[in-house]
Each structure stands twice: as C-alpha cells, then as structure tokens.
C-alpha cells in the first residue's frame, strides 16, 4: 500500500469517526470506561516522566544561565519550555508508546481473530462499539494527563532548582508570569489536542485494518508507533511556526 493510499484511507477513516461524533452516535458509558482505563494506565508513567523531564530541563538551564549570571530567569525559562514544547510532546510520546501500541494491538487482535466480523454478524457496528470510544478517550485523557504531567514537571523543576542551584521556590516562580502567558497554555493544549488526534487516528486505523495473523498485528503496532511519532514531530514544527507568526502579529499590532 503506497503512502498516499494509506494517507487517503486514514483521512476517510477519521472523517467516518467524526461523523459518529456529529450524530452523537456513541455510548457515553463506554467512553467514560475507556477514559478511566487510559488515564489510570498512564497517570503514574506520565507523572514520573514529567517530574524527571522538569528536573532535567532545570539542570540544563542552570548550567547555561549560571554562565551569564541570569539564574533568576531559571524558573521562567524552564516552565515556559515545559508548557509550550516539552509537556505536550512528552505526553504524546508517552501515550503513543503505551496506549497507542495497546489500542493498536487490541483492535488488531480482534480483527485477525475475526471478533470484528463476529460483531458485525451479531448486529453491532464495530466502529461505533470499538473505535469511537477509544478515539474519544485518548483525546480527553491526554488533556488530563497533560495537566497532570505539566504540574509534575514544574514540581521536578522546582525540586531540582533547590537541590542543584540552591534556588528557593519563590525565586523560581518570580519571572514565570513574564515567560508563560495564557497564550502559552492555550498553545500547549492545542498541541496536545492535535497530537492526540494523530495518535488516536493512527492506532485505531492500523489496528482496525490489521491483517495477516500475529505478524500483521505486530506490523500494525510498529506502524502506529513510527508514523505517530514522526507525525507528532512534524505537527509540532508546524504548530510552533504558526504560533510564532501569530505571536509576532499580536506583538506588532
């Protein structure tokens, strides 16, 4: 299957899913069940990774800012970098590795063991029953996890600033409002939404259309991981460029 064919099929698949949202044709209970599952499965991993990423960012900034005697800006810079860039990217990569692979494997296994065909034969719509709740759950959960991950990475930054740079929490947060605006937070959540759509589409598409037994499921999982990560990085670059243009326009006006 060529790249363009896959892309076209992916877009049609996404449009089909969006049609279910438009008609509100999905089970709310199933969506909540999936949200709980995704959030519960990923919260500890996201918060742990978030804490250490915040800590690493602080170490890197401390070393460089110290050379210029600008350690006071540490909290602002580290928090800004986390909120605008690292946070959404980290959550998306974490979800891609865990929930994306899991969903793709789960749907793929259901496909190759004929459970999806059996669903159809028993009067159920597999996209409505299986795909839509998982798709929505990944998107909504990624917001909770982003919020949670950002708080943890900021805590990691504060903790490491204290240990590594001897900076108190008050000093750390002093210049944060100058670096982190409402726009930064909105951008962060918009990126998160976009990354979650890329992830949810890829994992459900490749899983749902897996073929060729266990090998096919393995291929679906690998495709999900690779294409999602590449897609997320490209989408990050595009959104960062657009955000930069918007920011310059706002500043100039």
């Amino acid at each position: 299957m060529s790249f363009l064919t896959s892309l076209g099929q992916g877009v049609i698949f996404l449009t089909t899913i969006l049609g279910y949202f438009k008609r509100l044709d999905f089970s709310v209970n199933e969506v909540f069940e999936q949200i709980w599952k995704v959030t519960k499965e990923s919260a500890l991993m996201t918060s742990t990774a978030g804490f250490f990423v915040g800590a690493i960012m602080t170490i890197q900034f401390t070393l460089q800012l110290n050379e210029f005697g600008a350690l006071g800006y540490l909290g602002g810079l580290a928090t800004s970098g986390t909120v605008r860039e690292i946070g959404p990217l980290l959550i998306a990569f974490m979800l891609s590795g865990k929930i994306g692979a899991y969903t793709s494997a789960e749907l793929g296994t259901m496909r190759v063991t004929e459970q999806i065909d059996a669903l159809k034969c028993l009067g159920a719509d597999p996209i409505r029953e299986l795909v839509v709740p998982r798709f929505l759950a990944i998107i909504l959960s990624s917001f909770f996890l982003l919020g949670f991950g950002l708080v943890m990475s900021i805590l990691g930054g504060v903790f490491m600033a204290r240990i590594f740079g001897g900076i108190s929490p008050e000093e750390y947060f002093r210049y944060v409002p100058q670096f982190v605006h409402l726009g930064s937070i909105v951008l962060s959540f918009l990126k998160c939404l976009l990354f979650a759509i890329i992830l949810a589409t890829n994992c459900s598409f490749f899983g749902f259309y897996a073929s060729g037994g266990a090998l096919g499921v393995g291929r679906a999982v690998v495709k999900t991981a690779v294409i999602t990560m590449v897609g997320i990085v490209i989408a990050d670059w595009i959104t960062s460029q657009i955000a930069d243009v918007i920011l310059r326009t706002v500043v100039q006006s």
Binding site: M110, T113, E114, Q115, D117, A118, L119, C121
Partner: peptide, 12 residues
C-alpha cells in the same frame, strides 16, 4: 443467515 467463524471469535 448466521456465520460461525473459523476461529471461535468470542469477545475476550
């Protein structure tokens, strides 16, 4: 018209 699949295809 019902179909019984090659694999049991029971919902896990």
């Amino acid at each position: 018209i019902g179909m019984v699949f090659q694999q049991p295809a029971l919902f896990d």
